[in-house]
Computed example of a mutant assay.
Amino acid sequence: MGKIVWLASYPKSGNTWVRAFLHNYILQPETPHSINSLVEFSVAECAAAFFHAPGESLSTEQVQALRPQVHERLTRLHPDLVFVKTHNANLEMHGVPLCTPAHTAGALYIVRDPRDVALSYAAYTGKSVDEMIAFMENPGAANASDDAQVFERLSSWSEHVRSWVASPRRLLTRYEDLLAEPERYFARIIRFLGTGEVEAKRLARAIEFSSFGQLAAQEADQGYNAASLNGKFFRQGKSGQWRERLTPAQAERIAAAHGEVMRQLGYV
């Protein structure tokens, strides 16, 4: 068994929130851990610096050929488990797994209602909601490489979920449950990671330090290096916004494309 615990999600599903919680719980800082220092403890698998020198350009085949080597190097970042953020689906591309099984200890998969994801992801990327709905239906959907990162293969929202649900040694956590009952579901994450008995005061403090209000305040005060050019990264942090902001036709299109998986997760 490997050392990587994948912090996996489709984009805009709560991955950064969970990373912030883990940093505050495990490191136990005196003040809320900086959102711009998350890489000190958990890293983003897609960071270009792991794959090539600045200014170098690689094809998707070249990136995939390097992924097992990159993941092996990531296991050396810490003596114990290594937390690695990914938005990749747990699939293969060019015959190479996007998340190398040999280096995997387990996965924490965060999922969110795709109707809210469509709204949040559209705002983050600057795309229209209809464009984002179409993107989330596309089995070939990917985020392209740029100077900061190599490509991420997302596939469709449904296939992304299926790929991670089928993986061994994984814990699935719904964004909505973290919002509704944070003490229960964040404690569940800690127990899954096997880092010892959950300490109530430590848990409450970590939840407070990683609350949406705290994260948004940090972004307003310090900026956030993962924010887009289209506005804030931490926008509202609520669930069910789709009821007021999607048209009936948009909501129906998402349900038609992803209804089977949405039913399995309790979203419809």
Results as ranks from 00 to 15, higher is better:
residue 1 M to P: 04
residue 2 G to H: 08
residue 5 V to E: 00
residue 8 A to V: 00
residue 10 Y to W: 09
residue 11 P to F: 08
residue 13 S to E: 00
residue 14 G to H: 09
residue 20 A to T: 03
residue 21 F to R: 07
residue 25 Y to D: 12
residue 27 L to A: 10
residue 27 L to D: 10
residue 30 E to F: 00
residue 37 S to D: 05
residue 39 V to Q: 13
residue 42 S to F: 02
residue 44 A to E: 15
residue 45 E to R: 04
residue 45 E to C: 11
residue 45 E to K: 14
residue 47 A to M: 03
residue 50 F to H: 12
residue 51 F to A: 03
residue 57 S to T: 15
residue 58 L to I: 13
residue 60 T to L: 13
residue 61 E to C: 06
residue 62 Q to V: 06
residue 65 A to W: 13
residue 74 L to P: 04
residue 80 D to M: 06
residue 81 L to H: 11
residue 82 V to D: 00
residue 84 V to T: 13
residue 86 T to I: 05
residue 86 T to E: 09
residue 89 A to Y: 01
residue 94 H to Y: 13
residue 94 H to F: 11
residue 95 G to I: 06
residue 96 V to H: 10
residue 98 L to W: 02
residue 101 P to V: 01
residue 103 H to C: 15
residue 104 T to C: 15
residue 106 G to T: 11
residue 106 G to C: 12
residue 111 V to Q: 04
residue 112 R to Y: 13
residue 117 V to L: 08
residue 119 L to R: 02
residue 120 S to V: 10
residue 123 A to N: 14
residue 123 A to R: 12
residue 124 Y to C: 04
residue 126 G to D: 08
residue 133 I to N: 06
residue 133 I to F: 12
residue 137 E to Y: 09
residue 138 N to V: 13
residue 141 A to Y: 08
residue 141 A to P: 07
residue 141 A to L: 12
residue 142 A to I: 11
residue 145 S to A: 14
residue 146 D to P: 00
residue 148 A to E: 07
residue 148 A to T: 04
residue 151 F to K: 01
residue 151 F to R: 09
residue 159 E to D: 15
residue 159 E to S: 13
residue 164 W to D: 04
residue 168 P to G: 01
residue 169 R to S: 13
residue 169 R to A: 15
residue 171 L to E: 09
residue 171 L to S: 03
residue 180 A to L: 15
residue 183 E to F: 05
residue 184 R to W: 00
residue 189 I to H: 00
residue 193 L to K: 09
residue 193 L to G: 05
residue 198 V to K: 07
residue 198 V to R: 01
residue 200 A to T: 10
residue 206 A to D: 11
residue 207 I to R: 01
residue 216 A to I: 00
residue 218 Q to S: 01
residue 218 Q to H: 01
residue 220 A to M: 13
residue 222 Q to W: 13
residue 224 Y to A: 02
residue 227 A to R: 14
residue 227 A to W: 05
residue 230 N to P: 03
residue 231 G to M: 06
residue 231 G to W: 12
residue 234 F to I: 10
residue 236 Q to Y: 02
residue 237 G to D: 00
residue 240 G to F: 11
residue 245 R to T: 02
residue 245 R to M: 02
residue 246 L to Q: 06
residue 254 I to P: 00
residue 254 I to R: 03
residue 256 A to D: 08
residue 260 E to P: 03
residue 265 L to Y: 05
residue 266 G to M: 12
